[in-house]
Simulated scan of single mutants.
Amino acid sequence: MDDVAARTAPLPGDVTDLLRTLRERLDELADDEPVVALKTAGKLEAIVADYGSIAARYIDGDVIPLPRLAEALGTMLIAHMPWRALRSRSSRAARADVHFRTA
């Protein structure tokens, strides 16, 4: 597992701190106000969906091969379409539909 972690793209320190703070706060909310924790989780899910797809649109499979991208993210690539479509420069939208699963 350390080998996989060593090949992943590191998060900026401020993002790591923010995520840690958010996790701690969500732990508190889950204990004290579970409905608020659930609402917060839903809002976070929407943010992740928006920015995940935005970031994916900037990924070019010809510049960063998809297997290397998956490795950098610490995931396994799960493609729901032919590799040829994913590797096509004209298929930027298709690349946004690639799904990743945490390794």
Rank of each mutant, 00 (worst) to 15 (best):
69 L>V: 01
19 L>G: 09
43 K>Q: 11
14 D>S: 15
8 T>H: 07
50 D>W: 12
12 P>A: 07
83 W>T: 05
46 A>K: 06
19 L>V: 13
20 R>A: 07
57 R>A: 02
25 R>T: 13
38 L>V: 14
81 M>A: 05
4 V>A: 13
63 V>N: 00
38 L>I: 07
11 L>W: 08
102 T>G: 10
54 I>W: 03
91 S>L: 04
64 I>S: 03
8 T>Q: 06
30 A>E: 09
57 R>M: 02
78 I>G: 15
22 L>Y: 09
28 E>H: 11
48 V>R: 09
45 E>Y: 08
46 A>V: 05
4 V>D: 07
46 A>G: 12
87 R>P: 00
1 M>H: 12
6 A>I: 06
90 S>H: 13
59 I>Y: 02
82 P>Y: 11
90 S>A: 13
23 R>A: 11
30 A>C: 15
41 A>L: 04
38 L>D: 08
17 D>M: 13
100 F>A: 02
42 G>F: 03
50 D>K: 11
95 R>D: 00
10 P>H: 15
52 G>W: 00
74 G>D: 07
96 A>M: 04
5 A>T: 02
67 P>M: 05
57 R>P: 00
12 P>G: 05
56 A>Y: 02
91 S>H: 11
67 P>I: 02
33 E>L: 12
80 H>E: 09
62 D>W: 14
31 D>Q: 03
67 P>C: 05
95 R>A: 00
100 F>E: 02
4 V>Q: 08
35 V>S: 14
19 L>Q: 03
2 D>F: 12
25 R>K: 14
64 I>A: 03
102 T>I: 07
89 R>W: 03
82 P>W: 13
56 A>P: 04
28 E>I: 05
92 R>L: 00
94 A>M: 09
70 A>P: 04
15 V>H: 02
11 L>V: 10
69 L>N: 00
3 D>R: 08
63 V>I: 12
88 S>V: 05
18 L>Y: 15
52 G>Q: 00
35 V>M: 15
62 D>E: 15
79 A>C: 04
27 D>Y: 08
78 I>M: 12
26 L>Q: 11
68 R>E: 10
6 A>P: 01
34 P>W: 09
56 A>E: 06
32 D>Q: 06
31 D>W: 03
53 S>L: 04
2 D>N: 07
18 L>V: 06
86 L>Q: 05
52 G>R: 03
16 T>Y: 10
78 I>T: 11
68 R>Q: 09
6 A>Q: 03
61 G>A: 08
59 I>P: 01
51 Y>N: 10
23 R>E: 15
76 M>Q: 15
18 L>M: 09
37 A>L: 08
22 L>K: 07
47 I>A: 12
80 H>S: 09
